[in-house]
Design a protein around this nucleic acid. Structure first.
Length: 877
RNA sequence: GCGAAAGUGGCGGAAUUGGUAGACGCACUGGAUUUAGGUUCCAGCGCCGAAAGGCAUGUGGGUUCGAGUCCCUCCUUUCGCACCA
């Protein structure tokens, strides 16, 4: 055995053995229970980054632990290979996205293999393969047949110079990233998935999932189920005349939804979105209003932007009638009213809604109090939070006097009844914040939408036997519109129905489609169907691991997709992810500066020298190469575009994969945010070298059978106590708490104690053998290469991968005496040794005659003595 | 703006159910070993204090025999906000 730990020799050799024995290929049937653990598949951006290392090492540790515990474990890997960055790289380098993507995949796969992750590579998939995206298209068509997929217009960011749709990421400070032109909103036709049809189930089935509570809460809030009332504000006569005849079956009017129907007597105006038909009508012949609506089109579509912008409005000159009093209510256009939520129109109650209040103040509109919260004053001078609370109705007026004094629940019923009695359409309704999922993208590198647009037949689905609609792989985008829309070879086709000339849909699907079901395809990557029986074996995932940034969108879409597949009889589960581990982000500092053209240029943290203030905060930085100043943007998630990612390759080259894995796992808990630093990596390498050295010493003096029975000194007893406590704790940390840093600390503690034992008697060497063997097994999930090599030395002729998780010896955990903490008035004053089985009374008596207690009570009589068994005794005076 | 989290020594962090705050590391300081060291070993290492002891978990309050942990307030940072993935 080499006296020195040399990972460069150990790791490739161990990896070859794994490959030669197909060690991580999981069978699709087994007498063991199955455990399916998946990490969110990586985007092949070029190289692995630290977030990947963290993600897949967590998964790998779980893989090994569960395997040792006797499960049939599967850990697959794939590539989220469609998306915008490939197009950007193509534009920058003139290389087609396909070539760039496949090269990245090849490189990153090598890196994964060098990390030694226990991936079953026989199931590898890339979402840009026709054999994968074919089933996106097939399923799209099935959902279209069911009415889950439909077409309507949607709002996008529009760059008026490049004449192209921009992703939110491509909008910087309200301008197009390439042209610098102010971005506008534009409505275009798109395909949607009716995820709202599943809204209730998506909320209700969260309850049974083993997910972090905050993620479930985020999903509930995102779906945003609210109970309210929908009703119609009838048009005033002249408005009705302008807006045309009554809608089918109803009186003409403005439909609104409110969760606060109890405040209906406080309506003083109404507001509609700029895109609302009423606004469009009012703008005819009103150039000022038309200009305002035009102004509302300026800017992008991001909600954060809309929510923080200044609330503006303009009266339309159109009126509706209050449904109870018949008072005339003016309709305003408000830039804060969202066309996508509810009906794109709101009743405004400035007396009890903060936004309406601010709006009314700004434009001098009336504010009426109609709700009273007991004991809290009301004044229209300044907004107070309690104005929006539930209370009792007041000032309801002579036409609705019976509403006064009612609480919220009673008021709602009363209002709905009253409106109906007055002949106004009104009903309780459930409203969701969730919107249907728009999946059309005006981009090249994605799944082509399998629809043909025929001048005679309209939209026609591509027949199943003509799937996949193959994406041409040799195009290079130029930044202005989709290359597919400029490629007649792609879009010119025949209508599958009538055979006449037709045009393909040149949009591609959102890449969230690709990531909504890949984890099912791993089970059967070669199936000549979307999924087969093997998916029924592996699904659902027993553990899904990925970044917290996916807590809402990706997880919600995948849950929806799974339910939709279930409803088509393709899979037998309601939920895809039984348990979820959301990994904290790996962050790093961000440095940038403006270019002369107005763009932004980013610099990697190792390219700059930070300048720090007295408190140690970074205030700015200078480039190392020419000392020119750059701006500090704070810390943020590692991303290629911000150039603050860290390539793990340097660390692997220098210390080996095991050290990189060990370091990342020992730094903090998986769910915690990690601000990147590699200052203490050498400590991890030092530890592994130390373990190597300890095994070397033991093996050098001769391998012995591990301790099984016999008299032990108190020192060896204490060592075995530490060992078996560690086995217990490490198993709990790996399997239940998913907290690997504390498991590592426990193993370090064990070895710290081990090294203090100088006894070399036969029984001591037997205990040493036990400690080292078990230690290697405890470490195996984190550092499998070195563990494999050390195991061979400790137990020649056996294989680490065949070993079960070590068993706890209950006899080793028995203690004769235990130490209790002694407190006086809750302050630590001393310690007390008591027999393990000491009674409460014995402990109390011992504490009261304890020196420290006598000293700090100063002879006063104890008022109370609190005994916490096994922990402490607190004397209160 | 809205939703969800986080804040503990010089640094990463531990404290699992309200019960010894700082485990385990990194860095640093002193010493030993070594031809040498980015090696190894020993000791020290929250702050104030000579000590006894006191103070201390972002801020300010509260509950409790006892609070990093529970409640309220404020501050800061991170993630998400529907076309980055």
């Amino acid at each position: 055995m080499n006296p020195q730990y040399q990972p460069k020799a150990v790791e490739p050799e161990v990896q070859q053995e794994w490959a030669a024995t197909r060690a991580f290929v999981a069978p699709d049937a087994s007498a063991k229970p199955k455990y399916y653990c998946v990490s969110m598949l990586p985007y092949p951006s070029g190289k692995l980054h630290m977030g990947h290392v963290r993600n897949y090492t967590i998964n790998d540790a779980l893989y090994h632990y569960m395997r040792m515990k006797g499960w049939n474990v599967l850990m697959p890997m794939g590539w989220d290979a469609f998306g915008l960055p490939a197009e950007n790289a193509a534009m920058a380098n003139g290389v087609p996205p396909a070539k760039w993507t496949w090269e990245n995949i090849a490189y990153m796969k090598k890196q994964c293999q060098a990390m030694g992750w226990a991936i079953d590579w026989t199931r590898e998939l890339a979402t840009c393969s026709p054999s994968y995206y074919r089933w996106n298209q097939w399923f799209f068509l099935r959902l279209w047949e069911k009415g889950i997929v439909y077409r309507k217009t949607g709002v996008v960011n529009w760059d008026p110079v490049d004449q192209t749709v921009l992703a939110n990421e491509q909008v910087i400070d309200g301008r197009g990233w390439r042209t610098g032109a102010p971005v506008e909103k534009r409505e275009i036709p798109m395909w949607y998935m009716r995820i709202t049809q599943y809204a209730d189930e998506l909320i209700d089935s969260l309850d049974g999932l083993g997910w972090p509570e905050q993620v479930k809460q985020m999903q509930r809030n995102w779906i945003g189920r609210s109970y309210g009332v929908e009703f119609t504000l009838p048009y005033a006569p002249e408005t009705a005349a302008r807006m045309g005849g009554p809608s089918a079956g109803g009186k003409p009017g403005l439909k609104v939804f409110t969760t606060r129907a109890d405040t209906i007597m406080g309506i003083t105006f109404a507001a509609v979105a700029a895109e609302h038909p009423l606004a469009t009508e009012a703008a005819k012949g009103d150039p000022k209003l038309a200009a305002f609506i035009d102004e509302c089109r300026k800017g992008g579509v991001q909600e954060a932007e809309l929510a923080t912008m200044e609330k503006k409005g303009m009266p339309t000159g159109l009126f509706v009638l209050h449904p109870v009093t018949g008072d005339r209510i003016e309709v305003w256009v408000g830039n804060y009213v969202l066309m996508a939520y509810g009906e794109g129109a709101v009743m405004a109650v400035p007396g009890h809604d903060e936004r309406d209040f601010a709006f009314a103040k700004k434009y001098g509109l009336r504010i009426d109090q109609v709700i009273e919260v007991e004991g809290k004053p009301y004044s229209t001078d300044e907004w107070q939070p309690w104005y929006a609370e539930y209370g009792r109705n007041v000032n309801s007026g002579p036409r609705f006097a019976e509403l006064d004094g009612k609480d919220y629940a009673a008021a709602i019923d009363l209002v709905v009844g009253k409106l109906n009695a007055l002949g106004v359409e009104a009903a309780k309704r459930v409203q969701y914040r969730l919107r249907d999922w728009g999946i059309s993208r005006q981009r090249y590198w994605g799944t082509p939408i399998p629809i043909v647009r025929c001048p005679k037949c309209g939209d026609v689905g591509v027949p199943d036997d003509q799937l996949p609609v193959v994406l041409p792989e040799d195009l290079v985008p130029d930044g202005s519109g989709s290359p597919l829309a400029k490629d007649p070879a792609f879009y010119e086709c025949r209508c599958p129905k009538c055979g006449g000339p037709a045009r393909r849909d040149t949009d591609t699907m959102d890449t969230f489609v690709d990531s909504s079901w890949y984890f099912m395809r791993y089970a059967c990557p070669d199936a000549n169907a979307m999924v087969d029986a093997r998916a029924r074996y592996w699904m659902p995932l027993d553990m899904y691991i990925g970044g917290i940034e996916h807590a809402i969108l990706h997880l919600l879409y995948a849950r929806f997709w799974t339910k939709a597949m279930r409803d088509l009889g393709l899979i037998g589960v309601d939920e895809p992810f039984t348990n979820l581990l959301t990994q904290g982000m790996v962050l790093n500092h961000i440095y940038s500066r403006r270019t002369a053209k107005g763009g932004i240029e980013y610099f990697a943290p190792d390219e700059v020298e930070a300048t720090v203030d007295a408190e140690g905060r970074v205030t700015g930085a200078r480039l190392r190469r020419d000392a020119s100043p750059v701006d500090y943007e704070g810390i943020g998630t590692m991303s290629k575009s911000k150039r603050n990612g860290v390539d793990p390759q340097d660390m692997i080259d220098r210390y080996g994969a095991d050290t990189a894995r060990f370091y990342v796992m020992s730094a903090n808990a998986p769910t915690d945010t990690m601000i990147w630093s590699d200052e203490s990596v050498n400590g991890s390498f030092r530890f592994l070298s130390r373990v190597w050295g300890l095994v070397h010493d033991q093996v050098g003096a001769g391998v012995v059978p591990r301790y099984s029975a016999g008299e032990l000194s108190s020192e060896l007893k204490a060592l075995r106590l530490k060992l078996h406590r560690a086995i217990e704790k490490v198993g709990d940390d790996y399997g239940r708490r998913l907290q690997f840093n504390t498991a590592i600390a426990a193993i370090r503690e064990l070895l710290n104690l081990y090294e203090t034992v100088k006894d070399r008697s036969p029984v001591a060497r037997a205990v040493a053998q036990e400690v080292l063997e078990d230690c290697v097994l405890l470490l195996a999930p984190i550092v499998p290469h070195i563990a494999t090599a050390l195991w061979r030395e400790l137990r020649p002729g056996t294989r680490l991968l065949d070993q079960p998780w070590p068993a706890v010896d209950p006899a080793a955990l028995v203690q004769d005496t235990i130490e209790l903490v002694v407190q006086v008035n809750g302050k630590l004053r001393g310690h007390l040794q008591v027999a393990a089985g000491a009674s409460r009374e014995e402990i109390e008596a011992a504490a009261l005659r304890h020196d420290a207690v006598l000293k700090f009570t100063g002879g006063q009589k104890a008022k109370k003595v609190v005994v916490v068994p096994g922990r402490l005794v607190n004397v209160v005076v």
